[in-house]
Design a protein around this nucleic acid. Structure first.
Ligand SMILES: [Mn+2]
Ligand SMILES: [Mn+2]
Ligand SMILES: [Zn+2]
Ligand SMILES: [Zn+2]
Lengths: 127, 127
DNA sequence: ATAAGAATAGTAATCGTTACTATTCTTATT
DNA sequence: AATAAGAATAGTAACGATTACTATTCTTAT
């Protein structure tokens, strides 16, 4: 892996994501960044997107079998419309989730999908 | 499509999932069900797992780029251990999530990943 | 200017899953 | 029990998102 050095490709990938609608896929970014760098390859876009997530310059979110990228790096959750499929950011601290759930009476909330991440009992003992 | 008729393959897929550890992948089910039906094909396992989810006999949960299946069909959420990767069921009504988050002081909760599903503003207007 | 080694473009490979197709099985009707 | 319509199957090919590979180009410290 080693040190990270400058490349115009990485710079453009980052700038491009920041200029796009929320949550573009790697392919979305690829096609958009090609306007400025017509010879950039899809692999380069993937590599740089993933590096930018590692460095914290971007975040990402799974969407089915696809990953989408996000210039919003702060803690936030997502709202999925079951009709049009749009994925919207919902900025909310974890401790306000219950408030959110009751507060969003304007939105019709049918279901939530929560994954709690942490350390399980077995691993707690083991460490 | 069309009416669903009996097949011993579907019966065994369901029974096998019910007999396995939680959240087997399609491939896990395939290998286990092969003990009883050595000639079953992977496509048949996939088709039947998905049908069983449709009929509500099973549920499923995404795990990265893979889907895992679940004989627990009631509303529940999941806990992911960040050390060993285990995916555990957490039975909790949506309205008790806040309680859960504070109550599970025994587990070290580092992060939550919440997807709220419903109907967005645009779609609400449109309907 | 040079050299070491990151990063790249282009392509092949991977992997979970779905699609396809000829054949077999289930079920309702006689 | 024999028949016929059409589900379901086994086996295989194809798919789509992503990663791996490799020869070449670019960046940066000296
Ligand atoms: Mn987001
Ligand atoms: Mn579960
Ligand atoms: Zn919508
Ligand atoms: Zn663990």
């Amino acid at each position: 892996m080693a040190l990270r050095i400058y490349s115009k490709q990485r710079e453009q990938v980052l700038e491009t994501v920041k200029s796009m609608d929320p949550h573009p896929s790697a392919d979305d970014v690829y096609h958009r960044v090609r306007r400025r760098l017509p010879h950039i390859s899809l692999g380069t876009v993937y590599r740089n997107l993933n590096q930018l997530v590692e460095t914290g310059d971007l975040s990402c979110v799974r969407d089915g079998k696809m990953v989408r990228y996000d210039w919003e790096t702060g803690h936030h959750q997502h709202f999925r419309c079951e009709l049009c499929g749009v994925l919207q950011n919902v900025k909310v601290s974890n401790k306000e989730i219950m408030n959110l759930l009751s507060q969003y009476s304007g939105m019709i909330i049918n279901e939530i999908d929560l994954e709690i991440k942490g350390v399980c009992g077995d691993c707690s003992e083991r460490n």
